[in-house]
């Protein structure tokens, strides 16, 4: 009898297990137009989803939006196909996520880089200014003459946020330092124009800049080229780009979209999924400066000590890194 009971128990638990295996978690990822091969932001989100597939055993499907009007219908299609979580990457998707979150109140969404302010959306934002602050400080440490550069893709508030944090970090180390800055363009091409970025980088180097921080997607490759040719330094962005030109990329300002996406899926699997705004800063290392064997020789132990001290100060609130978003809203109030 006991053995039968045991058998029933085993069988029953097997049934439960197989049932839970059948009701596997399905994750839909909607990427921006630039797609999963952008070596940057979208690529990072894609990696996060792929990692979840491998480590958490979830099923995933990724789509790349063909244009900026397609987000809503793609998210909607995922929702109608009963996907458990829909991950939408990039601030362009804010409005479509808000619309769909209202239309499908039981559907869970993850929105990266914007705050949807909807009850069924987990909005993930990064404190880009904090990471930029750290790489700014590192740039200043590597500029004897006190001249560094910044290069943005398009002049949009998000990139301004990078620039402002970066400048603050530079000034923290060397209050007299000068920051040269350029933006690459006004069309989508700005994120994908390495030749132009290279020309502007040459210009900044010729004017005396010793390190350039580039936040311009694919265009950053041009800045790395210029750094190599001029034997100067560049700082990459979003994902770890130190490997692109080892010895010439001082570090990269990491934005761990992959971690954030992976975490969200993991929490869902564990039943701990929460909605609302989640901020990733230097504390959680959601934004960080990249260290690996490619830049180990460039960044000294002393440098690292200083950066870690700055990180600690940011965490404790001793250092207030200026946030362009807040300033922008402040302007409105005036």
């Amino acid at each position: 009898m006991q053995s039968i009971q045991k058998l029933a128990l085993v069988l029953g638990s097997l049934l439960v297990l197989s049932h839970s295996a059948m009701a596997e978690i399905k994750v839909g990822l909607v990427l921006e137009k630039s797609g999963k091969d952008d070596k940057s932001f979208n690529a990072s989100a894609y990696q996060g989803v792929k990692r979840a597939e491998k480590e958490l055993g979830v099923t995933t499907k990724t789509v790349e939006a063909p244009d900026n009007s397609a987000y809503e219908s793609l998210q909607r299609a995922f929702s109608e196909k009963k996907f458990d979580i829909i991950v939408a990457v990039g601030f362009h998707q804010l409005e479509s996520v808000r619309n769909n979150a209202a239309r499908f109140p039981n559907q869970k969404f993850v929105l990266v880089d914007e705050d949807a302010k909807m009850p069924n959306v987990r909005s993930v934002m990064f404190e880009e200014q904090e990471g930029s602050y750290l790489v700014g400080a590192l740039a200043a440490l590597h500029s004897k003459a006190g001249k560094v550069g910044f290069m943005g893709g398009m002049d949009v508030p998000l990139i301004r946020r990078f620039q402002l944090g970066y400048e603050a970090g530079v000034k923290k180390i060397n209050p007299k330092a000068e920051v040269l800055s350029n933006y690459l363009g006004v069309t989508g091409e700005a994120w994908n124009n390495p030749p132009k970025a290279k020309e502007l980088a040459f210009d900044q180097f010729n004017r005396g800049a010793e390190v350039i921080f580039v936040a311009a997607g694919n265009s950053g490759l041009g800045v790395f080229d210029a750094a190599q040719e001029k034997n100067k330094l560049a700082i990459g962005v979003d994902s770890n780009q130190n490997w692109v030109k080892p010895g010439y990329v001082l570090t990269s300002m990491l934005k761990h979209v992959d971690e954030a996406v992976f975490d969200s899926i993991k929490l869902y699997k564990e039943g701990k999924f929460t909605t609302g705004l989640i901020r990733y800063g230097v504390q959680s290392k959601g934004v960080d400066y990249a260290m690996d064997e490619n830049n180990a020789k460039l960044v000294t132990a002393n440098d690292r000590k200083k950066l870690e001290a700055l990180r600690a100060d940011i965490i404790t609130g001793k250092i207030k890194v200026p946030d362009y978003y807040l300033i922008q809203n402040g302007q409105k109030k005036k």
Binding site: L94, E114, M154, V156, L158, Q328, N329, K332
Partner: peptide, 11 residues
Amino acid sequence: YVLKDPNSAQA
């Protein structure tokens, strides 16, 4: 710069 929505982080 001219018609910007100050509440939006987007262009």
